[in-house]
């Protein structure tokens, strides 16, 4: 349980948000040419880092917009929040 500073609405309770998993996983440009192994990598395999991780979140009970977050999963400390399409901050 923690507070999240939505880039559109400001600081709100984490309950209003939904975690969308690892960020910056790019959808395959040519899906028809992907091998089964590449599909498995894209769909299922995750870094699941203990430490600083890049994630997508959605303000489901607010503005319903997606944004990115850099969070330390070992203590739930949020390091940075940035909008979709913006360049991720360097660590």
């Amino acid at each position: 349980m923690f507070l999240i500073n939505c880039p559109y609405c400001g600081e709100r309770d984490q309950q209003e948000f939904k975690a969308g998993g690892e960020a910056h996983i790019e959808r395959p440009k040519q899906p028809t040419e992907l091998s089964d192994d590449e599909w498995a990598e894209y769909l299922f395999m995750r870094k699941n880092i203990k430490g600083v991780q890049f994630e997508r979140w959605n303000h489901t009970h607010g503005c319903r917009k997606w944004f990115n977050m850099v969070r330390d999963t070992s203590n739930d400390e949020i390091k940075a929040i940035y909008k979709m399409g913006e360049k991720p901050p360097s660590q």
Binding site: G21, A40, F44, M45, R46, K47, N48, I49, K50, T73
Partner: peptide, 18 residues
């Protein structure tokens, strides 16, 4: 819950979320 941490040491990725 720490399976991915060990997997990352070996350069593997697993289909897990902790």
């Amino acid at each position: 819950g720490h399976s991915s941490v060990i997997a990352n040491m070996a350069g593997l990725r697993l289909p897990l979320e902790s």
